[in-house]
Design a protein around this nucleic acid. Structure first.
Length: 262
DNA sequence: ATGCCCGAGTCGCTCGGA
């Protein structure tokens, strides 16, 4: 069986990024894709272009903000859930889950949480608690599961170019990091960090201060593997060329390869 | 302490993002 390539990409507006999405699908040919920040109502999702590119899709959109989708090459993802159980705010489209190509994929757009402290940070932590609870059930199910998305958490200071101007940011507060660590402590494998423990890896470079040009990035897009998938991990990377396109998203697609015969 | 650069929405500005 060939390798299974699973990617996550915060696209930051699917309608303004449709050409880049199609170019990326054509060049990198991922088998499963998690998209976040569609910033599009359901009826404006470009399903026809995605179908024409050879992908089936499910999506959970919202006007202006948020929005998540799962794409599968040559297949229709079988939706298993939209929204978290007891989601604290169902008006925010931040979670969708499906079975595709033999794995269950949870697509996550975790709240940013800025400014902190404040109600947005409280919401981030509350949402995180619901995710942790749901993830425990997925892990315990024994199914092959990938939890992929924009976690809006910088796990350690090694995952940021420099903490100086980010000390007060919600993405690296101890509370945010503790939640992420509690998720890992359930047994999940942080795929990119596990495969490259010594490498500086970034998945996001903000639009300010020429951060892309100076490679001043953050690692906040993560793919977490359940116990039986961890030994199948054979590759991972960040498609940095997509971040360099004209009118690029501030995130780059982040991917793993699984060899499921193991 | 704040803006920087963006997309989306209602329109020449605000808001949210990270």
């Amino acid at each position: 069986m060939p390798k299974l390539k699973i990617a996550t990409f915060n696209i930051n507006g699917i309608r303004s990024r449709e050409a880049a999405l199609l170019e990326w699908l054509e060049k990198e040919s991922p088998d499963v894709v998690c998209l976040q920040e569609l910033k599009s109502p359901d009826e404006a999702f470009p399903i026809e272009a995605i179908n024409n590119a050879g992908y089936g899709a499910i999506w959970h959109g919202q006007k202006s903000w948020n929005g998540v989708a799962i794409l599968a090459k040559g297949a229709d993802p079988l939706e298993t859930r939209r929204g978290l159980p007891d989601d604290p705010d169902l008006t925010q489209s931040r979670y969708i889950e499906a079975a595709a190509h033999g794995v269950i994929v949870g697509c996550i757009y975790l709240p940013n949480g800025n400014p902190q402290p404040g109600p947005k940070f409280d919401y981030k932590l509350e949402w995180f608690e619901h995710l942790i609870r749901h993830a425990q059930g997925l892990f315990d199910s024994g199914h092959p599961v990938v939890l992929a998305g924009d976690y809006n958490v910088i796990p350690t200071d090694f995952d940021i170019y420099n903490t100086r101007s980010w000390k007060k940011d919600a993405l690296l507060q101890p509370e945010s990091r503790e939640c992420y660590q509690r998720l890992l402590d359930q047994g999940w494998t942080d795929a990119l960090r596990t495969l490259y423990p010594e490498e500086r890896i970034y998945t996001f470079w903000d639009y300010f201060r020429q951060h892309w040009q100076t490679n001043s990035g953050l690692r906040i897009d993560h793919l977490l593997l359940s116990a039986d998938l961890a030994p199948a991990l054979v590759g991972a990377g960040v498609d940095r060329w997509v971040r360099d396109l004209p009118k690029a998203s501030d995130h780059a697609p982040t991917w793993i390869e699984l060899d499921l015969k193991h």
